[in-house]
Design a protein around this nucleic acid. Structure first.
Length: 272
DNA sequence: ATTATTGTTGGTAG
DNA sequence: TCTACCAACAATAA
């Protein structure tokens, strides 16, 4: 599911369902999701608490509780949250997706006299729900979030200059450099900026840096808008190997970079 | 049967 | 300490 835009989409939905809600019951259906915390500790820590805010940084979510403790959520590759109204549970014909067999953690919450369930679903189980009294390293080590914090060109230039060997795409996906960029957003932004993904990060100049920052905003906001409008994301390069480039018509190509598949346009994405 | 998939982490080696 | 590389985690879909 998730890179920055998808996680932001999830955050907005979760906030609608859970902000100001009181957690009255927690069922950990798969203990792997909350490790290293013991399930009983996780349940005790959350039960009876009210969720005061839900924030996002990069691909991480932070739920703050009314006792100032927190729950950090990472959706891994296939995690998401479902909202289940009480009426749905009493009606066997209600629209409950078949994927609910991958239900991993269930929260029963009360908000404005309504009692609903929020369900964490994750087929592949690479996601995590972490209870902590304080911020965790995975959260504090994140670089600036392009949506929440904006992109500081000087800071980004300094980070890129240090990476002599690594490609621009690999560095974009380093969560301590910019938070929230994954394989799709990296590929899309480099296409928009007209930069070959293999180019050494340290070679970028000011003009391309400005282009890249704008390209990141472009792909993030576009993907976010599509999610809000329930539209499929029409990516320009991701998943389009051997199809024509929508900018110049050349045939898109694919190769592996840092263990990840990368699609790009050999004609209009130039080396730095 | 084989290969690929929107991600992170922990080990190793340099 | 920092950087680079790789296997592991798990369930589908083509």
């Amino acid at each position: 599911m998730p890179e920055l835009p998808e996680v932001e989409h999830v955050r907005r939905r979760l906030a609608r369902w859970m902000k100001g809600a009181r957690i009255v019951r927690v069922d950990v259906l798969d203990t792997r999701m909350v490790r290293p915390t013991k399930p009983a500790v996780f349940v005790d820590a959350l039960t009876g608490r009210t969720v005061t805010s839900i924030e996002r940084r990069g691909k991480w979510l932070r739920l703050r509780l009314d006792d100032d403790h927190r729950v950090f959520a990472h959706l891994g590759m296939t995690g998401w949250f479902e909202h289940e109204r009480a009426a749905d549970r009493s009606n066997p014909h209600a629209a409950v997706g078949h994927h609910l067999r991958f239900e991993r953690v269930r929260f029963v919450v009360t908000k404005r006299a309504k009692r609903d369930a929020i369900v964490y679903v994750d087929p592949r189980r690479w996601g995590r729900l972490i209870f902590s009294r304080d911020d965790i390293a995975s959260w504090t080590d994140l670089g600036p979030d392009p949506l929440a914090d904006g992109i500081d060109l000087d800071a980004l230039a300094a980070r890129l200059a240090r990476r002599k060997r690594a490609s621009i795409k690999e560095v974009l996906m380093d969560q301590t450099v910019i938070a929230g960029i994954g394989n799709i957003q990296a590929a899309e932004s480099l296409w928009k900026a007209g930069i070959d993904p293999r180019s050494p990060a340290s070679r970028i100049g000011r003009a391309d840096l400005v282009k890249l920052a704008a390209a990141l905003r472009w792909t993030i906001e576009r993907t976010l808008k599509d999610l809000a409008g329930h539209a499929k994301s029409p990516f320009r390069v991701y998943g389009r190997n051997r199809l024509p480039c929508s900018r110049c018509g050349a045939t898109l190509e694919r190769f592996e970079l840092g263990g990840r598949t990368t699609t790009y346009c050999p004609a209009c994405q130039r080396p730095l």
